[in-house]
Write a protein that binds this DNA or RNA. Structure first.
Lengths: 273, 273
DNA sequence: TTTAATTTTCTCATAATGCGGGAATGATTT
DNA sequence: AAATCATTCCCGCATTATGAGAAAATTAAA
C-alpha cells in the first residue's frame, strides 16, 4: 500500500471513440458551455485526458474555445447541416408543394424524415408569422409517437417491423401500439390501408395529419404532416386534409423517384441492434 | 518470409480519435454516400477497423446506413445545428433588424459569425424570392477574404492579431493584407477607424458592406454584411450603406450585451496553434 | 509594453485497447 | 424458403491512450 496504482482508467465498457463522441452530448441548449474542470468532474477522467479529448474535438471543429475558459459547440455542425441540406432532394422538391398547400391547410406543415431509428423535422412551413420556423429543423420525434413517426412506421418492410417488435416491445406497448406482434402489425396495417394517419398524441391542442413519402416503391423516406388546432376540427375536415396530404405525398414521391437516377441520393434504413 | 507480419497499422501520426473524426470529412455534397469497401481503400485500414469506425459513428448518430450498402451523414448534425441555433442570442436579435433594413438595403443581408479561425454565414435575409435562403447558413468564408471576415479581423484583440500574423503570414500576404506585421496592423486599423468595410473580393459582381457586432465592449462576435450588385453603385451609395450597417450593428451589439446577463451565452475566441 | 494569473500542452512509464485476418452471425432480396 | 450479401465476433499482439506533475503558452491586467 505504499504506492498508488498509476494510470488506472475508469474501466468503462465502451471504447475511447465512444467516450470522446459522448462528450458532445453534454453540450445542450440548457448547458451550452463546459469548462475543462466541469468535464473532469462529469467524465471522471484526468485533466490531461480531458484536454486531449477537447483538443481532438476542437481540431475537428466540433468544439470551439470561448473567452475566459470553456468550450461550446463548433462550426462544423452548421457546415455539416448545410452539407446534408444540399444533398437532400426532399428539400428541393417539397418547399414549392408546401407553398401551394399553405392556403388550403391554413395551419402548419412539417416534413419529417426517417433516419433509421429516429424521425425528425427537416422542414417546416409557417402560417403564423410570429413563429420562427427555422428553429424547428432538427426537432426529434419519438419513433412510436406522433402521426409523422407512426405513418412512417406503418410503411416499413415487414422484417424491420418484426425486429422492432422484438427489440422495442416495451416502448411499443407504452405508446399504445399493441402488446404483441399481432396487435402491432394489425394496427399498422390499418394505418397503411387508410393511407394517412390523424393523431393528437404529442400536443393535445393540435391534430397532425400525416401521409408517407416514398423514395422507391414500398420504401418510406419521410412523411408530410399537416397541423391544425384541434378545436373546431370536424371529422369531415380531417378526412379532407387526409386526402390533401395523400395526394401531395403522391406527387412528392413521384418527383423524388424521377429525381433520383440523376444524383446519388440515398435514404436511411432502420437497423435495430 | 513464411509468415506475414500480423496487425501492422498504417503508422499515421495522429490518434485514433482524429482518424475516426476524419472519416466524416469524406462525406461531402459531391460524395454523400460511402460504402465500407470504399472506406477500406480510401483510409488504407482493415475491413474490421472500418466497421468499428462506422459503428461508433452510427451509434453517435453521425452516420446512418442506407438501403443496400453504404452510409450517409446522420441526423445528429441536424439536431446539433438546432441546438446551436437555440442557444445563439444573435438569431433572436438580428432577424427583426434585418426585416427593418430590407427595403433600404434592397439587396441581400448576411449575418456572419466568428468561430475562432473560421467565419461562416449564420443567417441570410433574402430579397430575391427565387433564392432559397436556408441553404446559405453554414457557408464558410476564408478568414482573410471578404468584407465580413476582414471587418471581424480588424476588431480582434492585438495579441490575437500578433499570433495570426506570425502563424498565417503566407495566407495574409496572399490575401493582400500586407507583407509584414506593420502593414497588416495598419491596414486593419484603417478599417477600424472607418467603422465599416466595403469590398468586392469574393464575388466580383457584388459588393459587400460589413460592420462589426460586439458581444462585449471591444469583443467582436460577428458581422452584418449588406450586399448589393456592383454595377450602378456609387461611392455615395456605399458610404450611405456603410452608415446604415454601422448603426444597425450598434443597436444589435447593445441588445446583445443587454441580453447576455440573463443567459449563459458565450462567444468563440481565436486560438492559433 | 511588461507582468502575473490563468489555461493548455508536454513528458513519461504502464497497461489497456484498438488492430488485422478469418469465421460465424445476421440481414435482405429473389 | 434459400441464397447472397453485409456485418459482427474472436484473438493474440503491439500500438497508443492514460494520469500525475512539470513546462510552456496564452490571456488579462497594469
Amino acid at each position: 500500500m505504499d504506492s498508488v496504482t498509476p494510470a488506472s482508467r475508469p474501466v468503462s465498457g465502451d471504447s475511447s471513440i465512444t467516450r470522446v463522441l459522448g462528450v458532445l452530448d453534454l453540450f445542450t441548449p440548457e448547458t451550452p458551455v463546459w469548462t475543462v474542470d466541469m468535464l473532469v468532474v462529469r467524465l471522471g477522467v484526468g485533466r490531461a485526458t480531458v484536454y486531449r479529448y477537447v483538443r481532438a474535438l476542437c481540431d475537428a471543429g466540433f468544439l470551439v474555445p470561448v473567452a475566459g475558459a470553456g468550450y461550446v459547440l463548433g462550426p462544423r455542425f452548421i457546415e455539416f447541416d448545410r452539407s446534408i441540406r444540399l444533398a437532400d432532394p426532399l428539400l428541393h422538391i417539397v418547399p414549392p408543394v408546401m407553398a401551394e398547400l399553405r392556403d388550403v391547410v391554413n395551419g402548419g406543415q412539417l416534413l419529417c424524415a426517417f433516419y433509421g431509428l429516429r424521425v425528425l423535422t427537416v422542414l417546416q412551413d409557417k402560417t403564423d408569422p410570429n413563429i420562427t420556423m427555422s428553429m424547428e429543423r432538427g426537432r426529434p420525434f419519438p419513433l412510436f409517437q406522433g402521426s409523422p413517426s407512426r405513418v412512417i412506421l406503418a410503411h416499413l418492410p415487414t422484417y424491420q417491423l418484426r425486429n422492432l417488435a422484438l427489440n422495442q416491445q416495451a416502448e411499443i406497448a407504452a405508446a399504445g401500439l399493441g402488446e404483441n406482434w399481432a396487435d402491432f402489425r394489425d394496427g399498422l396495417r390499418a394505418i397503411r390501408r387508410a393511407g394517412y394517419l390523424a393523431a393528437s398524441d404529442i400536443d393535445k391542442a393540435l391534430v397532425g395529419i400525416s401521409a408517407p413519402i416514398f423514395h422507391a416503391p414500398g420504401a418510406v423516406a419521410a412523411s408530410l404532416c399537416l397541423v391544425r388546432t384541434r378545436e373546431g376540427l370536424t371529422a369531415a375536415d380531417e378526412a379532407f386534409l387526409g386526402g390533401v396530404a395523400v395526394e401531395a405525398c403522391k406527387r412528392i414521391s413521384a418527383e423524388l423517384q424521377a429525381f433520383r437516377p440523376g444524383e446519388g441520393a440515398a435514404f436511411p434504413i432502420s437497423r435495430v441492434r
